[in-house]
Amino acid sequence: MRPKQWYKNLVIFIGIVFSLNLLNFNLWTNVISAFVVFCLLSGSIYIINDCLDVEKDRNHPKKCERPLASGRLKKPHALLFSGIAVVIALLLAYTVNTSLFLVSLSFFGLILVYSLFLKEMILVDILVISAGFVLRAVAGCVAIGIFVSSWLILCTFLMALFLALVKRRHELILLKDKAGSHRKILESYSEDMLDQMINITTASLIMSYSLYTFFAQNIYLMATIPLAFYGVFRYLFLVHSNGIGGEPEIIFKDKGMVISMTLWVALVIGVLYFNKLGLPGV
């Protein structure tokens, strides 16, 4: 179920922060429930995906060590557990509200179709992955009954697209001539093509975030722009210098990324909530 990748579901908490409900403890139960729902769903989909790709994973230098690919876990046992987890997740989502149930069901259906078919379609594969992150962000909003901002959708989509493109590039470089045997779609990509798309997406991401801060009701959010820029550029630096693009979670082990992300979160919360409290000068 790859719990080390459940950090991706932290996107769910964006809604409660930017809607100025961080201190509304009555809503936290719903947000945490949504987080648990998506951890169970994403973990279940990882299991299904590994069952489908077990033979291909055996040709991968790292993925060959996964439980199914290595033979330590049997497919029937894995699929049974996956099914149980999906049922529990959807029931939990329904207890929160109908909207969260529908978004959760849409997420599971989308990623399941991706695992079965869409991952073999060039460009569609990375767009679906990005859409999955958007659904995570939307889930965090509908769980607490707040408006889903268009800026939230745009910035989340672009950030996820950026990470997906970098990961494809990393896989292409890591596997080289064996890329097609592991993931057939990699034969359709080239390093130059991915670099161009990464450049376009990076520019779009930082411009979209900047425009969001310009048009936000709180103009002091513009103070977070340098930290956002640094985080994106630092990640690109790590990818090109250390080749970590295939495992984005390694950013939590880089001191520069950890410091920039911590400062960004602290500054965003400070700007939003000090202003809400009506403190002078903000």
Rank of each mutant, 00 (worst) to 15 (best):
30 N>L: 02
153 I>Q: 05
70 S>N: 12
17 V>K: 03
135 L>M: 01
143 A>E: 00
228 A>P: 05
203 A>P: 04
235 Y>C: 12
179 A>Y: 06
184 K>E: 14
2 R>E: 10
159 M>S: 12
247 E>T: 14
172 L>N: 08
269 I>H: 04
26 N>C: 03
25 F>T: 10
86 V>W: 13
163 L>T: 15
137 A>I: 00
42 S>N: 00
252 F>Q: 00
30 N>Y: 04
155 C>P: 06
241 S>Y: 07
109 G>E: 07
189 Y>A: 00
51 C>K: 08
23 L>I: 07
237 F>V: 07
85 A>Q: 04
204 S>G: 07
29 T>E: 08
235 Y>E: 09
233 F>Y: 15
170 H>S: 15
134 V>T: 01
178 K>D: 13
13 F>W: 09
174 L>R: 10
77 H>V: 09
222 M>I: 12
65 E>N: 13
268 V>K: 03
75 K>T: 13
29 T>Y: 12
112 L>G: 02
108 F>S: 01
25 F>K: 06
112 L>D: 02
59 N>G: 08
234 R>H: 13
29 T>R: 13
227 L>N: 09
25 F>L: 15
272 L>R: 13
57 D>V: 09
25 F>R: 06
161 L>W: 12
70 S>V: 13
165 L>R: 09
165 L>K: 10
230 Y>R: 10
279 L>E: 09
227 L>A: 10
174 L>Y: 08
21 N>G: 14
216 A>M: 10
13 F>C: 13
106 S>T: 15
248 P>H: 07
204 S>L: 15
138 V>S: 08
13 F>Y: 12
277 L>K: 04
157 F>V: 02
273 Y>W: 07
84 I>D: 00
70 S>T: 11
263 L>F: 03
241 S>Q: 13
129 I>L: 09
216 A>N: 14
245 G>A: 01
51 C>N: 11
209 Y>V: 01
138 V>Q: 09
29 T>N: 09
264 W>R: 08
133 F>S: 11
138 V>K: 09
13 F>R: 10
146 I>F: 11
112 L>N: 04
81 F>E: 02
1 M>R: 06
43 G>I: 15
84 I>Y: 00
102 L>F: 15
115 S>N: 15
40 L>S: 00
46 Y>C: 06
164 A>S: 15
224 T>I: 01
224 T>N: 01
106 S>E: 06
100 L>N: 02
158 L>I: 05
239 V>F: 04
2 R>C: 06
105 L>A: 02
188 S>Q: 11
80 L>F: 08
263 L>W: 02
9 N>Y: 06
58 R>Q: 03
81 F>H: 04
139 A>I: 10
32 I>P: 03
196 Q>T: 11
131 A>C: 02
98 T>H: 10
54 V>K: 01
17 V>Q: 03
4 K>I: 14
277 L>H: 05
50 D>T: 12
155 C>E: 05
151 W>G: 01
48 I>Y: 15
236 L>Q: 13
150 S>Y: 12
89 A>T: 06
55 E>C: 02
